[in-house]
Design a protein around this nucleic acid. Structure first.
Lengths: 195, 195
DNA sequence: CCGCGTTTTCTAGCAGCGCTAGGAACAAGA
DNA sequence: TCTTGTTCCTAGCGCTGCTAGAAAACGCGG
């Protein structure tokens, strides 16, 4: 009994170790540097051990994505609840979102850019993903016009932020005008007559 | 003289052949299927020939991107000039942009998603890129408020479209609500009081 | 028509990738 | 101490982008 549980505990610990190593390596050197060999070195086990925990590299990345998304959800929530008016909350969430993307690009990529077969936009989506989207929903809700589709509106807001972030991070939009673009986007998103 | 020019002509022709083969292969089977060996087979030459024309695979992709961007610019222009009012033109360009992305995903990816070291957002950017952005500029210009930064506003519009497209294409936004989101985005983008 | 020199093209291989089969090493029970 | 069952590693497959050096094709003067 105890010996079995000890082993399971050690296994779980090693699994966390893998995910943490992958995240740290990605954040330090980018996802290109995260190879299965490198990762195996990092955790001081051989390559095949990774495959006894995860189906493949993609599954490891998905685990990092879920972990990172929990962080993101927390930061969005903090920004939203700290804001005063509904307008401020929407702006604060938008700024927190883009700030997260810029501060932790590897994490942002694995959640929102790289394809990593995570279920999105379905009830089976991981809780962290739904939490993050939920934060956006709550920020958008007060400024939605009567009868407007809240889900679609939130998705649209999200997409705008995502577009700004990805185009900038890939060098397709000049970095220095980011604040101006973000301000324009949020400004245009809020109907003029809403408090 | 003539023999030299003939060789140069043949070389240029083969270069076009490479780019065309890469584009067609990518559009048919996705960029993952475009390997240097596969491409060499397709053009019926050996691999190293590719490297006598291009610095590497990335340069071939960049050439496809420029070609594809010219197509995009043409479609945007057609949509813009066919529209009636300024509002219609903005909406039409937005729809043409997302339609292009959905109809020719491989092309869209190589222009706007994959990293392929093309100069963006600088005077050295290829003409096709500047043309496409110019179409967006012209569509946005009439609806820009007095004193608003037209460049930044256009970039913001572009980013919104890009976000909608990429999140949908990667399965992160449900496909069926695309039209609704696009309508919401364009609607919110145009100031209410503008004709 | 032939041999030479240049240019072009191909064969073969490097280092690295994700992933896996099969055997070695280890721990636990008899 | 021997056996059984699990865990883990070594070695290797087929693929990637890319390149060095040999081979072939070509144009030209004799």
């Amino acid at each position: 009994m105890t010996i079995q549980t000890r082993r399971e505990r050690e296994r779980a610990e090693r699994e966390r170790l893998i995910v943490t190593a992958a995240r740290e390596l990605a954040e330090a050197e980018g996802w290109d540097a995260v190879t299965t060999r490198r990762l195996a070195d990092e955790i001081e086990y051989s390559q095949p051990v990774l495959y006894s925990h995860f189906k493949g590299k993609g599954a490891i990345m998905a685990a990092v994505a879920v972990q990172g998304c929990a962080d993101l959800a927390g930061e969005l929530r903090a920004a939203r609840t700290a804001a005063g008016s509904a307008r401020d909350a929407l702006a604060a969430v938008g700024r927190a979102y883009t700030a997260f993307a810029r501060r932790r690009p590897a994490l942002y990529d694995v959640i929102f850019t790289l394809d990593v077969d995570l279920p999105f936009a379905t009830p089976e989506a991981p809780a962290a993903l739904q939490d993050a989207f939920g934060e956006l929903l709550q920020a958008v809700q007060p400024i939605a016009a009567e009868g407007e589709d809240l889900g679609a509106l939130t998705e649209t807001y999200w997409a705008g932020l995502h577009g700004l972030v990805t185009l900038m991070r890939s060098g397709r939009l000049p970095e220095e005008a980011h604040e101006r673009r973000l301000g324009l986007f949020i400004g245009h998103f809020v109907p003029s007559g809403t408090s």
